[in-house]
Amino acid sequence: MTKDLLGIKELDKDDIIRILDTASGFKGVLERDIKKVPTLRGKTMVNLFFEPSTRTRMSFELAGKRLSMDVTNVSISASSVTKGETLLDTIRTMEAYGADIVVIRHSSSGIPHLLADNVTASLINAGDGFNEHPTQALLDIFTIRQHKGRLEGLDVAIVGDIAHSRVARSNIYAMGKLGINVRLIGPPTLIPAGMDSLPKVKVFHRMEEGISGADVVMQLRVQRERQKGGFFPNIHEYAKLYILNGRRLSMAKDDAIVMHPGPINRGVEISSAVADGERSVILDQVNNGVAVRMAVVYLLSGEKTSRMMEERRQRTEDRRQKTDHKLMPAQERRQGTKDRRQKNEY
């Protein structure tokens, strides 16, 4: 792994397995009576959220605290910060406060990548636009492995609004790398262009066809605002076509598990009976989320192998050079200020 976790796209299979295995260890910690280890005492985590979030933010907060980190949450409305320089200034401020890990969520794709290039703190992408939500995919895969005991060759159906889902994308990439067969199910209006050209991915528009014989059924949350966007006529028709109910679940394998990244719309994408049924592992996902995030935080900031240190040093060096080049005007400004100060012009 490198300095940051920006997406599953940037990981290889070994990275993913390493995170999952590390998470298994932390899951043991979470099952103890005292759910805390001193591993990262004195390190600081900042949760920088430009989009509202309860679950993910809380999950990261708990992960940091269970590792004995100092954790601060910062929520900023994205509309108040639209200029990149302001974003860069914000992240540099966090770094000046001594943040070692910055967890960032933003409604625009690519913002974590932009920021990661400009700071030395480790960034964890907690969701950017429709691009990626890597820790969600990692916890989903962790949960699948926990229940299925294996990953390669499994058939996973992901159902719903694939187009606007960073969860779906991160899962698709992770599953592709792990040899899992992915079936995307949804109306053509919500399947983004080119998806069926990805390896190991098949696209279905009829739920019954796509779900049949699946090992895992992952329902995505459908946003009511998509109705306004004309992606489907209304929420009732959507539910009619894509809700996961008992009848449809019976078409999947007998031991198929049901997943959902939450929060769930009961009666829209999933029936209450299925959500609360014995095949549902939705609460395991929540629980595993903390262990997986502990693993990611630990691997990014805690593991003191010389390889990591060297890699980080090198990347920082490269980045500095790049940054110097990119931010010349600001530096010139700063230099100018220094010069003037020395000349007592202030």
Partner: peptide
């Protein structure tokens, strides 16, 4: 542009 590159980057496409 709308297409697999936009899909992979999670950016909204223009057909």
């Amino acid at each position: 542009n709308e297409g697999i590159t936009a899909t992979r980057l999670g950016l909204r496409g223009i057909p």
